[in-house]
Design a protein around this nucleic acid. Sequence first.
DNA 1: GCAAGGATGCTTACAGCGTAAGCATTCGTC
DNA 2: GACGAATGCTTACGCTGTAAGCATCCTTGC
Lengths: 229, 229
Amino acid sequence: MVKGVALTDRRAGAKAGLSRERVLDGALEYLDTYGLPALSMRKLGTHLGVEAMSLYRHVPNKGALLDGLVDRVMQLAFADLQDPPPDAWVPWVRQFAHSLRAALRAHPGVLPLAATRPVNSPDALQMSERWLAAMRAAGLPLGMALDVINVIATFTIGHTLAEVGQTPGHEGTEPDLDQRADELDPARFPNLTEVITTRAGLDFDTRFTAAIDILLAGYAALSRPGAAS
Amino acid sequence: MVKGVALTDRRAGAKAGLSRERVLDGALEYLDTYGLPALSMRKLGTHLGVEAMSLYRHVPNKGALLDGLVDRVMQLAFADLQDPPPDAWVPWVRQFAHSLRAALRAHPGVLPLAATRPVNSPDALQMSERWLAAMRAAGLPLGMALDVINVIATFTIGHTLAEVGQTPGHEGTEPDLDQRADELDPARFPNLTEVITTRAGLDFDTRFTAAIDILLAGYAALSRPGAAS
DNA sequence: GCAAGGATGCTTACAGCGTAAGCATTCGTC
DNA sequence: GACGAATGCTTACGCTGTAAGCATCCTTGC
């Protein structure tokens, strides 16, 4: 190969059609395929047909790229979510929770990032503002509206972390639940063994739904006029 | 300095008093002081007065070290926690939650690890087994006991992630809430502005306590005989 | 038509990372 | 005192994020 010829037959300076959009898209794609630990600037570069340093024209550094990924997934999560109607915040928050969980499960690679990096993008702020306004209009005090959203969001993140950390091949040689059952002494661990054989309490779907409903019922009760304090 | 003289005045092969215990202790200490991104095998080595590769005599690799840290913090979390009494699982789970949160807040560096890495150590298994047995004896069905523990644990992790991700200097130049208030246009974000000025819904303590109590009340209601399904 | 200047991508380079392989020394046991 | 196991050190390799500067292209003004 002639020196100076890059990954593709494009000479230095020629457009590769890169942009912040495309970088983020490529990164999310790469993440979904190969997982978070495999995501490096060089590999993302080759994935996009470009040298690693070219990415820095569109993203200040890797941290900002990861932040962008979180933001993007949040956008996807709530793209189809209308504003909360003024008369029924409970079902709206329920759907908020399920949308968030679905989006996080669809992109498990960003989940650890979403859990760690606070989202402060303008779009996120605007979403929060709209939600707070609408929930307030539905009769919730401002503080309680924020509490509800935050509690639901943090629980959803925590739950989904446990969920995806346990189900797939994950990273490397994490033995999954059924494999570990073989090495579990039924005499010493009767209850754990029974859990694994009967799968009681191992259904993430129903566990999540039940917990969300409990939380919503609780806050709904708190928000009703008769509540003390 | 003479070639061959190591970090301390100890020649190769001489004991440095290293052990898995001391490595983990040192790592946790380093983590609490300098944060997770700063923790490398080399730096931990010098922190312990030892070369990096010496650590590998006591820990198979860095991943195992991190797993060990999570395990250690969990031990600390539940060291003072008795087995659940047969008549009152609700207050016991409440204390479980608060102990877990306290331990995670005491070692924020391990929090992202605890959120990501499932705990499978023998001690953790034994704890779970004992808890399940006792909660069962208290009248909870096995599946619901597991659900309660998992829901409380995952919520606590999610909540504490948000909490510590927002309060301290965090990593680098994350502007904290009050600083961001200045750049927030009150006209476009009236509710967010009001949140920051009145601090309504920003109290992590009461938010956590309230959510835990709601969850516990909900599961207690579900577990009572009259409950359908 | 063409020069100027900004935008884009590439090259090189550096410090730091996890860790495999093998050496040197010391310790525990006979 | 000799020997094998433990322990710690040295060296080395391929990988990472990214700072600095170069080469080329595209756009704009004339």
